[in-house]
């Protein structure tokens, strides 16, 4: 995820804009939540965005889309990876993982532009489940309407040589995915 947000920030730079990215995490490596903010603009001051005012939300995990939806600007676009990772509050505690319907409803309070992506499945089909993030970036690239070649230039520079072709495939698979609802 941290590499994915670096890529988004570098795409902003490649477009000639100022860019900042910042992740918020404490015990992230140990199963906690990680949020990563990317901002582009003529001049970017704050490294973090604010609730109710971000344009695109990319959720790498299904339930997390609902946790962070309050950051999205009403009518903004949310891209949701359908993969579920059960939290400890559900595995050892009494919390229940929300249903697909409950999550979808929560997202719809803010927007109808919801793009579900089977990132892990698509990546697994391509032969490497580590490609899931690149699939999601492809989906993001589609809704952001930035020249895919700009994205690919940045991605290619970021990944080891032997994974370049795989990542290109994953990017296009994500980009060709479902249409964005209007």
């Amino acid at each position: 995820m941290l590499t994915a947000s670096d890529i988004v920030a570098e795409v902003g730079m490649a477009l000639g804009l100022d860019a900042k990215k910042s992740e918020v995490h404490g015990f992230s490596q140990r199963g906690g939540v990680v949020e990563s903010h990317v901002r582009w603009g003529k001049r970017v001051g704050a490294p973090l965005g604010e609730k109710g005012n971000i344009d695109y939300l990319l959720a790498f995990e299904l339930m997390e889309s609902a946790r962070w939806i309050e950051f999205l600007k009403p009518g903004g676009t949310v891209i949701v990876n359908r993969q579920r990772i059960l939290p400890m509050s559900a595995t050892v505690g009494d919390a229940l993982y929300p249903s697909d319907e409950a999550i979808d409803q929560a997202l719809r309070v803010v927007t109808t532009k919801i793009v579900y992506v089977d990132g892990l499945e698509v990546a697994t089909d391509l032969g490497n489940k580590n490609l899931a993030n690149t699939v999601l970036l492809g989906a993001l690239a589609r809704v952001m309407e930035v020249d895919p070649e700009v994205w690919l230039d940045v991605i290619v520079k970021r990944v080891p040589h032997k994974y370049i072709e795989q990542n290109k495939q994953a990017f296009w698979a994500g980009r060709m995915g479902e249409k964005v609802p209007s």
Partner: peptide, 10 residues
């Protein structure tokens, strides 16, 4: 809406 989402403790 976040309140409906279970916490994800480390």
């Amino acid at each position: 809406v976040a309140a409906q989402v279970p916490a994800r403790p480390p």
